[in-house]
Simulated assay, not measured.
Amino acid sequence: MNKKKVVVGMSGGVDSSVAALLLKEQGFEVIGVTMQIWDSSDPCRTSREGGCCGQSAVEDARRVAGVLDIPYYVMDFREPFRKKVMDYFVEEYLGGRTPNPCIACNRYVKWESLLEKSMDLGADYIATGHYARIEKLANGRFTIRNSAAAAKDQTYALYNLTQFQLAHTLMPVGGYRKEEIRTLARRAGLPVADKPDSQEICFIPDGDYAAFIDREAGDRVPGAGRFVDAGGRELGTSRGITHYTVGQRRHLNLSLGHPVFVTEIRPETNEVVVGENDEVFSDTLRCAGLNFMAIDDLRGFCDAVGKIRYSHRGAPCRITRTGEDEITAVFFERVRAVTPGQAAVFYDGERILCGGTIIRDRK
Rank of each mutant, 00 (worst) to 15 (best):
Y244Q: 01
D15T: 13
G95K: 09
V58T: 06
E179W: 02
F301I: 11
D297Y: 03
G231C: 07
A61K: 03
P43I: 14
F164L: 15
S113W: 10
E276N: 08
L22H: 02
F227C: 03
D206W: 12
P101K: 07
R249F: 07
Y347K: 14
F331D: 08
R286Y: 10
P316L: 02
A61H: 08
A123P: 02
R334E: 14
C44F: 11
L190H: 14
L285F: 15
D229T: 11
R360T: 14
G27K: 09
S238L: 00
A211N: 01
H168K: 13
A315N: 10
F332H: 15
D87R: 08
T263Q: 06
Y125Q: 15
I265T: 05
L235C: 09
E112V: 05
R63E: 15
N146F: 10
A149D: 14
V228T: 10
T245L: 10
P267L: 10
E264W: 10
R321V: 02
V335K: 08
I201Y: 09
Q55C: 02
Y176M: 05
L170R: 03
K307E: 14
R141M: 00
G32C: 04
G189Q: 15
A230S: 14
G122H: 10
R48M: 13
Y156F: 06
E59P: 00
K136N: 05
A337V: 02
T183E: 15
F28C: 00
D15E: 09
G51L: 04
R239F: 02
H130M: 09
G122D: 12
A193M: 08
V74C: 13
V192R: 00
P191W: 09
L235H: 01
I359F: 06
T328R: 14
E25W: 02
R266D: 13
P340D: 04
L94S: 01
G355L: 02
G231Y: 08
R318E: 09
R226L: 13
S41F: 06
R336A: 14
K307Q: 15
A210L: 01
T169F: 09
A65L: 07
A224S: 12
E29N: 10
F332P: 06
I308L: 15
T339C: 11
G314Y: 06
F203E: 04
V260T: 09
N100T: 05
Y72V: 01
L121E: 07
F77E: 00
F89A: 05
R107Y: 06
G51F: 05
A315Q: 10
L256A: 02
H258M: 04
A20Q: 00
L254T: 03
V8Y: 10
K4D: 08
C302N: 10
A167E: 15
G189T: 04
S11Q: 06
L23D: 03
D15S: 10
G32N: 11
P80G: 07
I37E: 01
